[in-house]
């Protein structure tokens, strides 16, 4: 993996929010890379800062500190409107709630073509319509759907419209923020299969944010586990599931119920208690690479121990 081209580099990204008198450190010092053509999964429980990370990367929030480097350019640097527009074309987002993320007063064709209009990607009305039809077919809907309104569609179909909208401007990188959480199991599989197919065909890179670990494992090449605004473990997805090293990852994995009654009868849950996992001298755990591509937040001493045992 490491010899692959980096599409996105995130360096010490911080996002703090002022709330009343205090600050909430939603994202507190993230550093990771996303390679071209891969799916990077970000998991963690609600409130761990995974969605904030996604939103900060695409510049829906201005980062408090740190850099997001996309194709060698800093996303958060000063930019003219023109540069920003160019950047917006490269990076798109798919949202969690297909009911709230589509404007109910716009037709499907206007929703999908909004990006096309803004970036002037269609030379004529006919070209615009053709593009919309093509996109609808790509995501498994048909042409007749173009003139309808979002309320006429089911959740799964709406999420397809959301995907078509993201694809309309030919992006390289898509941030999918819990794209399937609001959908039924059978529909989830449809959407995930569609996303995988599009990735193969268009060479897309995904940041896939979710709390459903089995789905994340299924779709991702590499996974970062977030806890309280920091990444505590990062590895290729097989490796992470076979060999979780951080106690938080272990607790998270042991909490997932699987559709297998025999397994469920014998499953023992590991409990992660952050109080017991404090370092003695207050040394901060930092991400260190234990084996190739497998990073874990640990102290110097733990790192040396892990090196021996792994």
């Amino acid at each position: 993996m490491s010899n692959q081209e980096k599409l996105l580099e995130i360096k010490n990204l911080k996002q703090h929010f002022k709330v009343g008198k205090g600050t909430v450190k939603a994202v507190d010092g993230l550093t990771f890379d996303i390679y071209k053509g891969e799916t990077f999964g970000l998991v963690g429980e609600s409130g761990c800062g995974k969605s904030t990370t996604g939103r900060t990367i695409i510049r829906l929030y201005n980062a408090t500190d740190g850099e997001v480097i996309f194709n060698g350019e800093d996303v958060h640097g000063k930019k003219s409107a023109k540069e920003l527009k160019k950047f917006n074309r490269k990076m798109q987002m798919i949202f969690q709630d297909p009911y709230a993320s589509l404007n109910p007063r716009m037709t499907v064709s206007d929703i999908i073509a909004e990006g096309i209009d803004i970036h002037g990607l269609a030379s004529s009305k006919q070209a615009r319509m053709d593009k919309v039809h093509e996109l609808l077919e790509t995501v498994g809907l048909n042409k007749e759907h173009a003139n309808r309104y979002p309320h006429e569609f089911s959740g799964g179909q709406r999420q397809r419209i959301g995907i078509a909208r993201a694809l309309a401007v030919d992006p390289e990188f898509i941030i999918a923020d819990e794209p399937i959480s609001a959908l039924d199991v059978s529909i989830q599989a449809q959407v995930v299969n569609l996303m995988k197919k599009l990735q193969r065909e268009k060479g897309l890179t995904y940041l896939f944010i979710a709390h459903d670990l089995s789905m994340v494992k299924y779709i991702s090449d590499r996974i970062g586990v977030m806890y309280r605004g920091e990444i505590v473990e990062l590895a290729e997805s097989e490796e992470l599931y076979r060999n979780p090293l951080h106690p938080y990852t272990q607790s998270l994995l042991s909490a997932i119920p699987l559709p297998d009654p025999e397994y469920e009868r014998s499953r023992r849950r590991k409990i992660y208690d952050p109080e017991k996992h404090l370092t003695e001298n207050g040394e901060k755990r930092v991400l260190r690479e234990v084996t190739e591509g497998h990073w874990i937040a640990c102290t110097e001493e733990e790192f040396n121990q892990l090196k021996v045992t792994v």
Partner: peptide
């Protein structure tokens, strides 16, 4: 079958999920 097939198991490899078509 469709319901069971549309859930990835943690040790499943890259086989495609069996989605139930339609709605």
């Amino acid at each position: 079958w469709g319901l069971l097939g549309s859930m990835p198991s943690l040790d499943s490899t890259d086989e495609e999920l069996i989605a139930i078509p339609g709605s």
